[in-house]
Simulated scan of single mutants.
Amino acid sequence: MTIRVVVADDQELVRSGFAMILDAQPDIEVVAEVGDGAAAVAAVVRLAPDVALLDIRMPVLDGIEACRAITAGGGCRTVMLTTFDSDAYVYEALHAGASGFLLKDVRRDDLVHAVRVVTAGDSLLAPSVARRLIEEYTAATGRPAPSPDRLETLEVLTARERETLLHLGRGLSNAEIAVALVVSEHTVKSHVGNVLAKLGLRDRIQAVICAYETGLIAAGATAAAAAGGRSGVSPSKVSPSGG
């Protein structure tokens, strides 16, 4: 299967360079190169690619808003590109529905790997890293503001599925959740699938965000867990999440 990609960046040399790297792969085809967010959204609607690489800072429509519009349409997954190694940008990108986040100085192999990873339905940040970023960002800025009223969103879940979402929000792997719930990994996988389907979430990273935004986990509540070894992963690295 050929992976179809749209590259959006207002710097012509940057987007041409990314396009050249990706087009050189036998399983990837760049179907459009555009210079602003509005053109990126239009290209995705017109060409129905598998992945859109979006610069965060673009004219007409910035990359965050373009990402939000693209992911709302479903089908195309997004990877954000920026020169700024900022937790705030990572959070905003993930909250908008991005499947990953890369710095523009990403290595050639990591760029190609990123496109393949998100096409396969995975994410470029391990859920534990996403949880750490959200924890730190919400503690520093007060965003997003969890509201107890939003717990109504979780009423579609069974008690065990809600427990599963809580553990996903804490960044646990399927194996770790299985230990916590005293069930098999196969059962956990089923619970995770049910949580994602019932809440309309694309992946585990979105589940992390949901756990915070529904108030299931309050900012600061899992700070102790952040001291684990996994929390040291840099947000600029390509780190696919587990299934």
Rank of each mutant, 00 (worst) to 15 (best):
A130H: 05
H167W: 15
A145I: 12
L133H: 05
N174H: 11
N174W: 00
E155R: 15
S173T: 15
A178S: 14
Y137P: 05
E161D: 04
E176T: 02
T153Q: 13
R132M: 09
G142I: 09
A180D: 11
A145P: 05
E155F: 08
S128R: 14
A140M: 06
V179F: 06
D122R: 15
L151P: 01
T141V: 02
T119W: 02
G171D: 07
H167M: 12
S147D: 14
L165E: 07
S123A: 13
G169A: 04
A180Y: 03
A140Y: 05
E163T: 11
L168N: 08
E163V: 04
S147L: 12
T158V: 06
Y137Q: 14
R162M: 05
H167L: 15
T164R: 02
V183I: 15
G121W: 04
A130G: 11
I177H: 04
L168I: 10
T119E: 13
P127V: 03
A145Y: 01
D149V: 09
L168A: 10
P146W: 06
E152S: 13
E176Y: 02
L181T: 05
V182G: 04
A145H: 07
R143E: 14
S173M: 07
S147Q: 13
D122P: 00
H167R: 15
Y137D: 03
T153V: 13
S184I: 04
T158I: 04
E161Y: 08
E163W: 08
L166H: 12
S123W: 02
R160F: 00
T141D: 05
L154V: 12
L172Y: 15
V179M: 11
H167G: 06
V183M: 10
A140D: 10
P148F: 05
A139G: 02
H186Y: 01
V179I: 13
S123F: 01
L172V: 00
A178I: 07
L181C: 04
E185K: 10
R132F: 02
R162S: 07
L181N: 10
G121T: 02
E176K: 14
D149G: 08
L157A: 06
E161A: 10
V179K: 14
P144V: 02
S147I: 00
A145C: 04
R143H: 10
A140K: 15
T158S: 15
A139D: 11
P148R: 01
E155Q: 14
V156N: 04
E176M: 12
V129P: 01
V156A: 14
E176N: 07
P127N: 11
S147P: 00
E135M: 05
G142E: 04
R170M: 15
R160C: 02
E152Q: 11
P146K: 04
R150T: 08
L166M: 09
E163C: 03
L154I: 09
E163Y: 06
A159P: 08
L172Q: 12
L166G: 07
R170A: 12
A145N: 05
V183F: 03
T153Y: 04
L181D: 08
T119Y: 00
V182S: 14
E161G: 06
A180L: 09
T153N: 01
A140H: 05
E136M: 07
R132Q: 11
D149W: 02
R150Y: 06
